[in-house]
Simulated scan of single mutants.
Amino acid sequence: MAEVINNKEKNRYELKLDGHTAIAEYILNKQGVLFFTHTEVPKDLEGEGVASKLMESAFDDAEERGLKIAPICPFVKSYIQRHPEWKRLLAEEHRF
């Protein structure tokens, strides 16, 4: 599978595959919290693990940079519920 990139100019993580782009949009605040606001996977890529790869790479990047995460997007929150090992990255006020 292709590599996930952090497109800082557009404030989103991107995974380009087969001419399509899956995205996870975020807002990074001054306190070092990544607020994930929206994820989108093109229909042609659904069911191929693209969103999971996108989130795993984004969370790995956040952890490497010492950032915390805030799952505003319902998909991101449900992903963390299914993969509780990522709860360690949750910003204090966004723990569940």
Rank of each mutant, 00 (worst) to 15 (best):
N7H: 11
E40T: 07
E63W: 06
S52K: 15
K77P: 01
K43T: 15
D44A: 15
G49V: 11
F75M: 05
E40S: 13
F75W: 04
I23D: 02
A2M: 12
V41P: 07
N29L: 11
F96W: 05
T39R: 05
A70S: 04
A58H: 03
P71Y: 12
E85M: 04
F75Q: 06
A58W: 11
A70M: 06
H38G: 00
Q81I: 14
H38L: 06
D60L: 03
S78I: 01
E85P: 08
H20E: 15
H20K: 12
F36A: 11
I72H: 00
L15D: 00
V50Y: 01
E9R: 01
E64Q: 15
E40Y: 12
V33M: 09
K53I: 01
K8V: 15
L34A: 12
C73Y: 09
Q31N: 10
E56H: 11
L28T: 03
I23F: 00
K10S: 10
T39H: 12
F59N: 00
K68W: 02
N29C: 00
K16T: 14
V4Y: 11
A22C: 06
E63R: 13
Q81W: 07
L45C: 07
P84Y: 09
T39C: 12
A70P: 00
A58I: 01
T39A: 08
L17F: 06
W86I: 08
L34I: 05
E56V: 15
D18I: 00
H94V: 01
I5W: 03
S57H: 14
P84Q: 14
A51L: 06
E14F: 09
S52P: 00
Q81V: 15
L54S: 12
P71R: 12
E63A: 13
Q81F: 11
K8M: 12
L54R: 13
Q81H: 06
P74H: 14
A51Y: 09
A24C: 01
A58M: 10
I27E: 03
P71H: 12
G66F: 05
I5R: 14
G47W: 10
G49T: 04
E64H: 13
R88Y: 01
R82P: 01
H83I: 08
V76M: 09
E40P: 05
Q31P: 02
I27W: 05
H38P: 07
V76Y: 08
R95Q: 06
N11R: 13
S78C: 08
F35M: 13
S78M: 06
L15M: 07
P74T: 05
H83Q: 11
C73I: 13
S78T: 13
R12C: 10
K8G: 10
G19S: 06
T39D: 04
